[in-house]
Design a protein around this nucleic acid. Structure first.
Lengths: 123, 123
DNA sequence: CCTAGATATCGACATCTGTCAATACCTCGT
DNA sequence: ACGAGGTATTGACAGATGTCGATATCTAGG
């Protein structure tokens, strides 16, 4: 009968739920969190949405400073964060710096999240 | 580049780009950033992905503490943050607390972002 | 009631983050 | 070359955040 061969799970582990796949790795979580942190700021979200509301997803810093109501150094800082996270690209033309939305950057992040944060999506 | 043949814009407003829609409101940016902040942490991403890897997107705290390698109070704190952001729900059954993924929570966020961060998506 | 075990809250601490003023850099027109 | 104006960097500082140990709370059994 082998009664005492398999019992452990049934008797004491009443809190457990079957596992259907592998969770996100620690490195992946670290990387994804860093990307999300770049998005998780009201000023940066507004900056991106302002870019999206301009033709071609492009605008220069002088178009961005006033709407967000922050100082020029602060706006410059936020744009640097967004650029390092891969959400925008910088293009300096003469005196002005133009920032452009990277197409699909947000979508790629969203897809990655959907893949790991949807029940049964690992199958 | 043929800069000299450009129309009247050239003199003073040379840095401007046509606007095609309205950017995200300040309140919306604040709200969305708060939701994103809840996601923007390696431990919380792992917790959610562990939930997603369990049947029904559900697991109890005892299943979550070990894999993330953090103390029990810290895990409890992260789960509270996720619950307040609407990503999980808490259900206490006897001694154990079960957390369940809220279906579509991440998708709703992703959709909201796509709507505001995609060039020309305001139409 | 009292104990044991699971979870939540509290207090404290180090670190990270957003912000601005001051300043440096860089490009253009004069 | 020089000065003016747009942008980036630096330094400093207040506030938010992640983490843990200690402790409170809550439930089931004896």
């Amino acid at each position: 009968m082998a009664l005492d061969l398999l019992p452990v799970v049934a008797s004491s582990a009443a809190c457990c739920t079957p596992v259907t796949g592998a969770p996100m790795s620690a490195e992946d979580a670290e990387r994804t969190a860093r990307t999300l942190k770049a998005l998780a700021d009201p000023a940066r979200l507004r900056l991106l949405s302002i870019l999206a509301s301009h033709e071609g997803g492009e605008a220069c810093v002088c178009d961005l400073t006033d709407p967000v109501g922050l100082s020029q150094p602060t706006v410059s800082h936020h744009l640097k964060v967004l650029a390092e996270a891969g959400f925008v690209t910088r293009d300096k033309r003469g005196v002005w710096a133009y920032f452009t939305l990277v197409p699909g950057a947000a979508d790629e992040l969203a897809g990655h999240l959907a893949q790991h944060l949807t029940p049964g999506a690992s199958a």
